[in-house]
Design a protein around this nucleic acid. Structure first.
Length: 267
RNA sequence: CUCGUCGCAGGC
């Protein structure tokens, strides 16, 4: 079984769900991990509907879902294009009774993605042993729902409780500063990043490029962009948008035409 | 052997 599971999840990770499904169907025996690997595969490949239908088959077969199953299903819900309310209620009631930090964090994230921020915060408050991922998820929830003030307030609480933030925390904070047009605060966060040697990855640099542009400091955006060596689609878009905001359409077009020289295709 | 958190733009 273990070898079949390993093989199946290798195909799932490679995005070949056709083969993964065939392996699952042809297995001499299945265990919980087999179900979990198949569901996780569909969830990770954006085929949420398939993940749900395998999940129902799993329940019908008498297998008991564990926390890993719930995490994959919650992830499928979070990335689904459309969700009916009865599905959400069913999954969330299962997830609420799981009493696990990771399941609660995934549930919090689902509520946030569907705009039910109040419920997300309730889940967050009830998690006794919050870890870094939990804090990051809630701060991101506020940032993504355009509630920058609450995001920053929660970061203060996180600090007061002695948690060390990472680059993911910083991306949400910088995003909040962009939304508020708060240059001073943005510069403070940038200084905090340097002082605490937080890793500057593409995500964080892109957030900084966007923040400086939206807060009126285009030169800093330019500088960060030129120092960024592995630019991806989002970082190019951020820089093009930065120039556009400042009325520099000609420069934006120039940057746009150098994208393909860098091997990135515009969207 | 399977699992939770992050950026730009666009669409609506």
């Amino acid at each position: 079984v273990v070898s079949w599971n390993t093989l199946m999840s290798a195909y799932a990770k490679a995005g070949d769900m056709g083969v993964a499904q065939e392996l699952f169907d042809g297995m001499p025996e299945r265990n919980l991990v087999s179900w979990n690997a198949l569901i996780a595969g569909y969830a990770q490949n954006g085929q949420s509907e398939k993940a749900f239908s395998i999940f129902s088959q799993m329940l019908a077969s008498g297998a008991r879902p564990d926390n890993t199953t719930l995490l994959s299903i919650l992830s499928a819900c979070t990335h689904a294009h459309s969700l009916d309310d009865s599905m959400v209620e069913q999954i969330t009631s299962l997830a609420r009774s799981a009493n696990s930090v990771s399941v609660s964090t995934a549930l919090l994230n689902l509520y946030a993605k569907i705009g039910r921020i109040k419920e997300a915060k309730e889940i967050f408050d009830r998690i006794p042993e919050k870890d870094l991922v939990t804090w990051n998820a809630m701060i991101a929830a506020y940032s993504q729902n355009r509630r920058p003030v609450e995001a920053i307030e929660l970061f203060r609480v996180m600090q007061a409780m002695g948690f060390k933030p990472d680059s993911i925390t910083m991306v949400s904070l910088i995003g909040s500063c962009s939304q508020m047009g708060a240059l001073g605060l943005g510069e403070w966060v940038h200084a905090y990043i340097r002082k605490n040697s937080i890793e500057l990855d593409v995500y964080l640099i892109t957030a900084l490029i966007d923040m400086y542009a939206k807060c009126g400091n285009l030169d800093r955006s330019h500088l960060l962009f030129s120092e960024l060596h592995w630019k991806d689609l989002a970082s190019w878009n951020a820089m093009i948008n930065a120039l556009a905001i400042h009325g520099k359409g000609d420069e934006a077009l120039k940057i746009f035409s150098s994208m393909d020289l860098d091997g990135v295709l515009p969207n």
